[in-house]
Design a protein around this nucleic acid. Structure first.
Length: 573
DNA sequence: GCCGTTTTCGGCCCGACTGTTTTCAGTCG
């Protein structure tokens, strides 16, 4: 069983957590966290890289020591250091650091001072007043610990980007109505368009921070105010979403926007560049000594550290700074480049709108084409079409195309990939289609080899144009099935098959680093909404955001082709 | 533990806020 990057990264993060509690050298702790980030961000499996004899010490923030540890993990599945320090630090202390306001130092002090061994112990101590008697702790801290533990939910909770928008956009609109407010934006991972966000970082330019924050904390969805100063406040909304607000002067707007957009790794790299130039970069601006030499807008900030402006979606320290330096930033695909949607359902299977309605909605999107891809017969619960029904739909689409202007419907199907990699319809029927999307909807539990081979076998059929939602994950609900992405990408390339980036915000499948991997190998990506209603076509923008995070350019995306070019591109042999 | 045109030691990003103190450590982003 190959060791996955995420498992190695989790081990390193765990080591960092434990070392921190042991009060180890903070830079050593950071080294483990940086290495975890590096491993997690690799689009290729480091186990496979090792197999090929790669020197992992060439990766950023991985030196000889950690490269050696990775090799051991890959070989044995274990990390001796982790086993050792796990014995010394109760897991409950790590869990306690997830309580807001409790970090490694205070968590350890709590457990040591009161001789605790579990979170239950900690909760009891909070209830009977023992915590407030520890030096450095008081009533407020005790109450917070008690309340957090009583809620029973101190695990990390991230919201999908579309959910975050539901709360964030109305709040932003409300903030923009506050007196004395000059500008406001949501920064953080929201602005970087990550698939999930942990909290909202809202930035406001204005003069009287105290007044603005006073109004902000009066928003009617605010349930709890964790902190409230003249420039900064943290609240929790009724929905449980944490919101951080910062007020800064207009002269620092660009610096602050840059700073609070992150990512942390991108910022650190930026501050290092500033240092290298004898400058200091913080959220107020770029400084030479005491003199502010940039700050009002982001372009100035980047200019000051010798770079062109970098799109927020790229700010993950995954090579964007080097690319910017060399004038090789990607010319990212945009929503306006999209000429059509290649995956949509109708009432014929489990969609909510008819062929006609979907066609009209696609025309309103300004598209040249829309592929109708209802489910195939194995998808009984989704009203999958039988062979006769699909044949009838092909005729209905031909007929409708005669009658309508300004949009071309492509006759397609989202055909099930069966357990053995065969398809749910005979080639004689698939041949009549303009477009075939092949997807896995069953047997998720196959092992990695079997699952990978199953999908590759489906691609062996030249009638298949696109593999739909290739990894099957549902964000926050279902893990991706076991799959060797690199093999899949390699197979897609040699077969001329495209991979889907499903734009539905619950899927966003492929994810960003895998899109980048595919594009690097010359595999085209189809960004498709998998719309089950006319409204579902609007999800395209989430797919575009994800594609941009994956460094995709227009030429990497199948459905940026106009109709004629698309039809040519769909001829696989 | 990583890193290096200041290169094998000695650095490692930076500021606001809270709670508990009474000048600051810890936490957070």
């Amino acid at each position: 069983m190959p060791v996955h990057n995420s498992e190695i990264a989790a081990m390193f993060d765990h080591v960092a957590d434990l070392l921190e509690i042991q009060d180890a050298n903070p830079f050593r702790v950071r080294a483990y966290r940086n290495a975890a980030d590096t491993v997690r961000d690799q689009s290729r499996s480091v186990a496979a890289m090792l197999d090929e004899g790669a020197d992992l010490a060439e990766l950023p923030d991985i030196g000889d020591d950690l490269a050696g540890k990775i090799a051991v993990i890959v070989r044995t599945g274990h990390l001796a250091l982790l086993d050792e320090i796990s014995d010394d630090v109760p897991e409950a202390i790590v869990a306690a650091t997830r309580i807001p306001g409790i970090g490694p130092k205070r968590a350890r002090k709590l457990f040591d001072a009161l001789d605790l061994t579990s979170l239950d112990d900690l909760e009891k101590a909070a209830e009977d007043g023992r915590i407030a008697r520890i030096a450095g702790f008081g009533e407020k801290t005790q109450a917070r610990i008690r309340d957090e533990l009583a809620r029973g939910d101190i695990t990390e909770r991230r919201l999908r980007i579309d959910t975050a928008e539901e709360f964030g956009e109305p709040l932003l609109a409300w903030i923009r109505g506050i007196d004395g407010m000059e500008k406001a934006e949501i920064a953080g991972s929201y602005r970087r368009r990550k698939e999930t966000v942990g909290d909202l970082d809202i930035l406001v330019a204005g003069r009287d921070g105290g007044k603005i924050i006073e109004r902000f904390t009066a928003y009617d969805e605010v349930e709890d105010i964790a902190s409230k100063g003249k420039t900064r406040s943290t609240v929790t909304l009724r929905s449980g979403l944490q919101v951080d607000l910062r007020v800064i002067p207009s002269l620092s707007w660009g610096a602050a926007l840059h700073y609070f957009t992150g990512s942390k790794a991108h910022n650190i790299a930026g501050r290092r560049r500033a240092q290298d130039r004898g400058l200091k970069l913080n959220e107020y601006g770029l400084f030479k000594g005491d003199e502010q030499i940039a700050g009002a807008n982001e372009t100035q900030i980047y200019d000051g550290i010798g770079l062109p402006w970098i799109d927020p979606v790229l700010r993950e320290n995954r090579g964007e700074i080097e690319a910017a330096e060399n004038g090789q930033l990607p010319d990212l695909v945009e929503l306006g480049d999209v000429k059509g949607d290649l995956h949509a359902h109708t009432t014929a299977s489990d969609g909510k709108n008819t062929l006609c309605e979907m066609a009209a909605a696609a025309k309103r999107q300004g598209y040249e084409y829309l592929a109708i891809t209802d489910h195939s017969k194995s998808q009984t619960q989704a009203g999958g079409l039988g062979a006769d029904e699909l044949a009838a739909q092909i005729d209905a689409i031909a007929e409708l195309n005669e009658k309508i202007d300004g949009i071309r419907l492509l006759a397609g199907c989202e055909v099930d990939i069966l357990k053995d990699g065969g398809l749910d319809f005979h080639d004689s029927l698939l041949e009549r289609l303009d477009l075939v999307v092949a997807s896995v909807h069953s047997n998720f539990a196959l092992d990695e080899d079997a699952q990978t081979e199953r999908i590759i076998r489906a691609m062996d059929n030249p009638l298949v144009h696109i593999i739909g939602h290739p990894t099957g994950r549902l964000i926050g609900q279902r893990r991706a099935y076991a799959l060797d992405i690199e093999r899949l990408v390699g197979a897609a390339r040699t077969r001329g098959c495209a991979l889907e980036l499903n734009a539905n915000p619950i899927r966003l499948d492929l994810k960003d680093v895998h899109c980048r991997l595919a594009a690097e190998h010359g595999v085209r990506i189809a960004i498709s909404t998998d719309a089950h209603s006319t409204g579902g076509l609007d999800h395209m923008r989430y797919g575009i955001d994800q594609a941009r995070r994956g460094w995709l350019e227009r030429g990497d995306v199948l459905n940026t082709l106009g109709l004629d070019d698309l039809v040519k591109a769909l001829k696989r042999n």
